[in-house]
């Protein structure tokens, strides 16, 4: 396949970025999107030009390291698919493809297509855990957990922290990401003890880290490669309301 690429190039966070046009020939339709970029970079390096920086690691859709907004859609818009899992057979010979970083104020560009998603780590650090000292846990089968509850928790826990939800949202809201973790932990009996504290702390950190408000556009869930449902946001809002009320009464 032969393709035209419009790729965002930016040297550093403070620098100005711009689109640059490239042409690439003889791309195998069996190669992945990132392998197509690898090929481009090989050609650029051979020609002594600076290669396009982009993030990736597992290249099988689970680490959440890859990003990219492809033709305006985070991860390229194939249901349940990350950029690294996207294959060139989904494109046509002769296509022009626009490639940009995930765009959000809370995700500053570090170089070209690489962004800083550190805000997500901070949200987890604020309360995305169950406090349990190593070695002091009871037997794992002590508390039976009904299969549907465990299955729900798994569905929420499937989030890979990629940031597509934020990039897809006009307000750059992190509600889907945060909601997924809150829902995972708040659903399980083990997570109940810290439920209120967790919800309040994570929501507060989300605002702090510069993510925007949720206006129920729903773009986040549509872009999510793990198909995290919008329900997690409603669930988090409920838990938040309960925790806030308790907080007021408690005072």
């Amino acid at each position: 396949m032969n393709l035209k690429l419009k790729i965002w190039r930016q040297d550093e966070t403070s620098g100005a970025g711009r689109f640059k046009d490239y042409e690439i020939r003889d791309v195998s339709p069996d190669s992945s999107f990132l392998e197509m970029l690898d090929l481009l970079n090989e050609k650029l390096v051979e020609a002594g030009e600076s290669p396009v920086a982009f993030d990736s690691d597992c290249r099988e859709g689970v680490c959440g390291m890859c990003s990219l907004t492809i033709n305006g859609v985070p991860h390229g818009g194939h249901r349940g698919t990350t950029t690294c899992q996207l294959h060139m057979r989904s494109f046509n010979d002769g296509d022009t493809i626009t490639i940009e970083p995930f765009r959000a104020n809370a995700f500053p560009v570090l170089r070209d297509l690489v962004v800083d998603r550190g805000g997500f780590d901070e949200i987890i650090q604020a309360g995305g855990f169950i406090t349990c000292r190593t070695g002091s846990s009871q037997d794992a089968n002590e508390v039976p957990i009904p299969k549907p509850v465990a299955d729900d928790a798994f569905d929420f826990a499937a989030c890979i922290g990629c940031g597509a939800c934020v990039a897809a949202c006009k307000n750059a809201s992190a509600m889907l990401f945060t909601g997924a973790k809150v829902a995972h932990l708040n659903t399980l009996p083990q997570g109940k003890a810290e439920k209120d504290r967790r919800t309040l702390a994570m929501v507060a950190k989300m605002d702090d880290a510069g993510f925007g408000n949720c206006r129920n556009y729903g773009e986040c869930s549509a872009a999510c490669p793990k198909e995290i449902p919008l329900d997690v946001i409603a669930k988090m809002n409920r838990d938040y309301a309960v925790a806030s009320v308790k907080g007021i009464i408690g005072k």
Binding site: A140, F154, A157, Q190
Partner: peptide, 22 residues
């Protein structure tokens, strides 16, 4: 065996049977 106890306590959603056991 302790590893499984630890992970369950952390909220790792291991597969379960209908009776709720692992």
């Amino acid at each position: 065996a302790n590893i499984i106890d630890q992970c369950v306590a952390q909220g790792v959603p291991f597969a379960r049977e209908y009776g709720g056991l692992l």
